[in-house]
Each structure stands twice: as structure tokens, then as C-alpha cells.
Nucleic acid binder design. Structure first.
Lengths: 339, 339
DNA sequence: TTGTACGCGTTATCAC
DNA sequence: GTGATAACGCGTACAA
């Protein structure tokens, strides 16, 4: 086992000073060709690499980005991470991923751990519990310390920072309009409680589209589940009690599960009933029938977030003046709606 | 903006020495009650938290784990990360995730970045390109430097380190046996090239089960795709040319896609043909019909890997004596096979 | 009971 | 052209 070699080791071996070694490795003009060659050769031979931690301490820059998200076993967040990684890596940054698992406490703990010097900035998406409580002090503390923060997808107005979201209202609006355009009259919405920022916006878009088409909004056709987790029973009840000819769901799973229930009843998709979901993931692509969805472009969101964050980190002069980038969702039409 | 406060700041404000502050915060017996209370109150007031980087430099311990995986938009890897996070977090470690995106070069670059002091140990799963090339020097270098390494799922015999895998051969064997038990005679296998360690093992299990049941192995019934990515055309060709009554696939996507092709031909699942896949993800659960799969217990693998790694990190005395933990796969029976 | 000095690995400044 | 010194923030052995 050959442990990592340090400047000091090289200096000792070559009988020069540490600073000479440091300069030689940086190809400084102050150092003689002879010494430089000698030092560089030795360094190469022993595969010298500067210690990141020491450099971080000196520069007060870690080149690490902290990412705190509610879940990872979700296609959307997975694509966001991928986008972040992509940009971050290209800029020489590492990504530290922490999962809040939709828990407020874990979100706080993770942020505190990372805020003590481990990272240069945060990218995060709020846990559902945090949104429900409406307690954003941990975010405010971080920004007050001068640590840049970019909020992604699940955001809040109560914190002043950069944000990247998609226009969820528009997405739901587009989807609903599409269903209306196909002659659907009884359009249901399966969503979650309004404390989730995205669900609230989507519900808004749904209402807006109906109103604009002078269609009555029947509250009985709106099913609000208590979280993004599947609640099979509620969905089943809902379809037993209501007769609808189109369904908009705020995620893939609700949609696919609903389609199955409907198919079991012998109702044909998309002939008798249409479905549109949110998130263009594997489920949508490989469901049967394949799903028409509102694509959220998570990878793009991740890339933009990383870009905004790194810009902030590397130009700490201009604080304030925060931006919110709003991406446009796209309707990906497949077989769960009429073409 | 109130920047982070340091020991030095406290010392200056309270007109004591830095070490006094340090000791006071640690509740050292050497320090008078008075001073301790004063210091602790002040520290609390200004929310003092020790700087992780400084501590890392001092202790030569970062409390960071480096995770290098080929992809993240895959349910299996996602569950592995979750398992790692779970254990790591409980032990006070952070997880730095790097994606190789199945590329050898990116795998090497990522490892080198992290190996220069950023992490205490690695958990990784080999990229397909790395397995194809069979070049593991970057892993060997890391272990030679004394950095603990735990290989997960996609492993190699050529590197001496701890490993966590599932018994892929057994999984495929169990699945194939199940199909045979249902009276299937023409069992196909859709897999990838053998350079992927898991595919090779699964193919082995398939063959073993057939041989054991005195069934002929028809090589035409084995489709080897060049990677884990979907190759729709090849699969279509395969089913056009071969008539089979059961299919075992090495992942969910191959399975679901194959089922769709079969359904389009009007063949009934599971009446006329059975399907079994690998990975118990969302697709399997929500496919129509739902999928019988070999569950790989990714979260468990992640947890065990994290545990093995942290054990190594924290007991660096006993090097060598590496273990390979082999988890048993489980057959999750759903509607794509006869019950 | 408190403070000084040193070291972790690196870089930048200044002196020789 | 080279080297000594200080500094980043912390902890600790040792001195006062």
C-alpha cells in the first residue's frame, strides 16, 4: 500500500523546500528549469495529486454542490439529478446527494450537515412535510449565511433565492384543453392536497381550462389524495362513484393505476375515456396503452439549476436580484388519448 | 448576511484564547464553569458549528462516501443509493454520487476526483464499458492507496475488495424453473452480451435450469442485445422469427416491451405465454399484466455495502480478508405467469 | 484554569 | 532562484 504523497514528502526526498515544490508544480517562472523538471518528474512518478480538502480549507471553496431532494426512487427527481450532475461535473464540481424522504426533520438535518463547510451551494426541492408546515427557517438561515440556494420544482415564495420550475399550471391547462378538444365533457382530476406547490398549480390550470371553455367545475370530479404515495382504495372508490370520460392525474402512477381499474371495468381507452398524466417516465412509455403526459423536462431543470447555482458561487459579488426560470412543459401524446 | 462564525471569532469577542474556546465547547473538565457557560452561551447565540473541512483536514476523515454508478435513471440503482444513504446518514456520513453513464473514462475521472481526499471510501458498480474493456487499474490504484472500496452488483474478480451481489445465477435459475414447472417448453432468454457480469450469471442460471430438467438449449432462443438499452428492432425480429411459450428477460424494460409485442399479435399472457423479468420496480408493478420478477433487493444491497464500507473505514487495522456477500433473490409472482 | 505551539496540506507573500 | 512564514479552522499536548 502506497499512501498518498504530499508536497512535504516530495520536498523531503528532493531536499528542497515545500514552497519550491509547490511553485515548481505550478510551472512558476521563478523556479529554474532544472528544479522544475526534477520536481515534476518525481511528482508524476509518485502520482502526486493535491489534496482537495487542504485546498478547500485554503480557498473556502469546496467545489461540492449539495442536493437535497425528497426522494430518489422517482423518475422525475432522478432526471433532475442527472441534469445537475451533467453540468456540475463539466464545471469540476461534485454532487452530494441527500434525501429528505419527504420529512421536514431530515431536510433540516441534511442541510445543517452540509452547510458547515461541506458545500458551496444548495440545490433543493422541498419535502412535502416542509410545504405542509410552511416552515422555511432552515432555508432562510442558509441564505443569510451567504450560501447560494437554488430551489427546483417544489418551491416557495417565502424564500428569496433563485428558482427553477416548470409552468405547472400551463401544463395542466394544456392537458385539460386537449381533453376538451377531444369532446370530453366529464373530466376528472386526481391530485394531492394543495400544500404541494405543484399540485396546487396543476389544479389551477385544470380549473382555468374548464372555465375558459364554459364548462362547469364539478368538485366531485376532483380527487385530492393526501400525498404523492398511492392510495389505491381512494382511487377505486372514486371511480366507483363517479362516471367520467377523461382523467388528468398529477403523476404517472396515479394514471397507470387508474387506467387499470378502468380497463377492468371493460371500458376502452382511449375510445371511451382518455387519460393524461404528469412526468414522462418509463411507466408512461411502457404502459398499456402508452400514456399521454405532460413532460416536465427534469434534466433540463437540473442543468439550469446547476448553472444558476455555479454562477452565484463563482460571482458572489452580485447577491440579490434573484431569478425564477420557468420552463414550458410539453405535451407528449401517446395512446391514452385520441390522436 | 451573517457569515459563519469560527473559534477565532469567539475567542476574540470573549477575550480568551482559541483553545480555551475549543475546550469549553467540548465541555472539557479543564475549563472553569464560568468560562464554559460564557463560551457556550455565546456559541449558541451565534450558532457556532465547527467547520467540516477543517475537521476533515485534521482527522484525515471526511465522513463522505463516494458512490460511482453507471446510471441513476434506473430503478435498481436508485434503490441501491437509497439503501446507502440510509445507513450512511445514520452513521453521520454524506454520500457523494457520481455517474459514470456507462463510460470508462468518466468512471476513471470521477474516481480520481474523489480519491484526492474528498471521500473516505468508495461504493461502486462497474460501468458496462469498464466490464467490456476489463481494465480495472483505476480500482486497483485506489485500493493500493488504502482507500476502502466496496463493489456492488456489477463486480469483477480481478479486484481484491469487499463485494455485495445477488445470486444472479440463482435468480435466473429460479425463474426458469418456475416457467418449466408451468409446463413451458420453449423458453426464451433476452439478455445482453456476456461482458456484463450480471447478464453472464443470469444466462448461466437459465442454462442450468434447462439442463437440469433435461431440456434442450436452443441457442436461437437466446437473444443477446449489445447493452442494457432498449433495442426495439432486435426484439421485434426475435419474436417474428421464433415461436416461444415463455420469456425470461434480464430487466424490466425488455420484458414490458416484449409483452407489448406479443399482445399485439393477439397472444394471451399468461395463458399462451409467460413472462418473467429482473428488477422489482414500478414498471413491473404497474404493467398490464403486472410482471412476475426476480427481485434484486437493491436497497438491502446498498445498506450492506454502506455497512461494510464504514466498517472498513472505521477499523482500518484489518486490511485484507475481503468478503463477498451474496444476497438471495426473491421471485415476486404477479400476473405475467400462471399462479 | 488558561494559553502557547504545532500540525493537518496547500498556497501566497515576502525575504534572502 | 529558493526558502521561510503566515494563513485557512480546528484540536490537543504541553507549558505556564
Amino acid at each position: 500500500m502506497k499512501a498518498k504523497i504530499t508536497l512535504k514528502d516530495i520536498a523531503r526526498e528532493l531536499e528542497v523546500s515545500i514552497s519550491t515544490v509547490s511553485k515548481a508544480l505550478k510551472n512558476s517562472e521563478e523556479i529554474s528549469r532544472d528544479t522544475k523538471e526534477k520536481v515534476q518528474a518525481f511528482a508524476k512518478l509518485y502520482n502526486y495529486k493535491p489534496n482537495n480538502i487542504a485546498i478547500s480549507l485554503k480557498n473556502k471553496r469546496t467545489k461540492n454542490i449539495g442536493v437535497v431532494i425528497p426522494a430518489i426512487v422517482h423518475h422525475f427527481f432522478t432526471t433532475v439529478i442527472r441534469g445537475i450532475e451533467k453540468h456540475a461535473n463539466a464545471k469540476g464540481y461534485n454532487v452530494i446527494v441527500c434525501l429528505s424522504e419527504e420529512s421536514f426533520d431530515r431536510e433540516v438535518i441534511n442541510m445543517e450537515m452540509l452547510a458547515n463547510g461541506s458545500i458551496d451551494g444548495f440545490i433543493m426541492s422541498l419535502s412535502s412535510e416542509t410545504q405542509r408546515k410552511g416552515d422555511y427557517n432552515h432555508l432562510k438561515e442558509v441564505t443569510e449565511q451567504g450560501i447560494p440556494l437554488v430551489l427546483v420544482d417544489r418551491v416557495t415564495n417565502e424564500v428569496d433565492c433563485d428558482k427553477v420550475i416548470i409552468d405547472d399550471e400551463l401544463g395542466a391547462y394544456m392537458a385539460t384543453k386537449k381533453l376538451i378538444g377531444q369532446g370530453r365533457k366529464k373530466i376528472a382530476l386526481i391530485t394531492t392536497d394543495d400544500y404541494l406547490s405543484v399540485s396546487k398549480a396543476r389544479t389551477g390550470g385544470y380549473r382555468k381550462a374548464l372555465l375558459e371553455s364554459n364548462m362547469e367545475i364539478d368538485e366531485k370530479r376532483i380527487l385530492k389524495l393526501s400525498s404523492m404515495e398511492m392510495d389505491e382504495k381512494s382511487i377505486e372508490d372514486f371511480f366507483n362513484k363517479n362516471s367520467v370520460d377523461a382523467v388528468l392525474c398529477v403523476n404517472e402512477i396515479f394514471t397507470v393505476y387508474s387506467m387499470r381499474l378502468i380497463q377492468k371495468k371493460g371500458i376502452r381507452i382511449p375510445d371511451d375515456i382518455s387519460f393524461i398524466g404528469f412526468t414522462d417516465g418509463l411507466l408512461s412509455k411502457y404502459a398499456n396503452p402508452s400514456l399521454t403526459v405532460v413532460a416536465q423536462h427534469g434534466e433540463k431543470m437540473g442543468e439550469i439549476a446547476a448553472q444558476m447555482l455555479i454562477d452565484r458561487v463563482e460571482n458572489e459579488n452580485d447577491e440579490g436580484n434573484y431569478q425564477t426560470k420557468i420552463l414550458e412543459p410539453t405535451l407528449v401524446v401517446r395512446d391514452s388519448t385520441i390522436n
